[in-house]
Design a binder for these strands. Structure first.
Lengths: 129, 129
DNA sequence: GTCGGGGCTTACGTGAACGTAAACCTCGCC
DNA sequence: GGCGAGGTTTACGTTCACGTAAGCCCCGAC
């Protein structure tokens, strides 16, 4: 298929990360690129996983939390009890994210208010000067 | 007013942090408790600020980013150019948070889908066994 | 052949955000 | 008057997520 294997440098350019970062994620078992001899080659799933990793990071998740989430997107574990455990932790993450989404909405409106106040206060200062 | 000053331990119990954390935030100029001799005393504004700090941390912001945001909620800087700078960085944070809110919505639906798939797949396994 | 570019491993360094240990003060109580 | 609880400073240790440097391999171009 359109597996379009990419070198580590191509990946770095595409996702704006460093080689060190990709190798580090691999060491932490978040990525599993193929090998051509010594060289790493990243395929479609690696790109999808990396995208999820970077997104998770923006949400403030740790790499370990992200790794557990990736298990869900991964058809690696075919075991029943394993999958149930994965689902359980995924539901916890989901709850976290829902709470965070809620909180973010509140914080957004508060921050907008605060910025508006600051702006009017600034206008008063300027007109009063 | 209901300033109800609190000791460091009362604060720790109320917000589930350690004394070290509160002193650390003070060293980084995120909190400014009064002093009764040597002892710290935390008032209403300190509690409000700490609440914002902990929320910001859940959103993945650094303490420095949070400190800049707190300047907005704080009537400390009465300077015009200073306030304009504060507003500018606050708008950046706001943009970050809006993007994050958006992304979180997407990630949430994707994760829900993925969990649902995992659940049905698990059901198939159990019934098929 | 050599040499530069790209990639690899190994290992020590770094900044953020605290943890933890040592040593001191001081106030209330028995 | 001693002592234990609670608070303080100082300073080194720790975890996470990489950065950075050294040294090696390998392949294609000149």
């Amino acid at each position: 298929m359109g597996d379009t294997l990419m070198t580590i440098r191509q990946m770095c350019d595409a996702f704006e990360v460093t080689p060190r970062t990709l190798r580090f994620y691999e060491a932490r078992e978040l990525l599993f690129p193929q090998r051509n001899g010594q060289h790493r080659l990243y395929g479609r799933t690696d790109r999808a996983r990396l995208k999820l990793i970077l997104r998770g990071k923006r949400f403030g998740f740790s790499l370990e939390q992200i790794r557990q989430l990736l298990e869900l997107y991964d058809p690696a574990e075919r075991n029943i009890t394993q999958t149930e455990a994965t689902l359980a932790t995924a539901r916890e993450r989901l709850a976290d994210m829902e709470r965070q989404h809620q909180e973010l909405g509140i914080a957004l409106s508060e921050l907008r208010d605060q910025i508006a106040q600051g702006e009017t206060w600034l206008q008063n200062l300027k007109s009063g000067a």
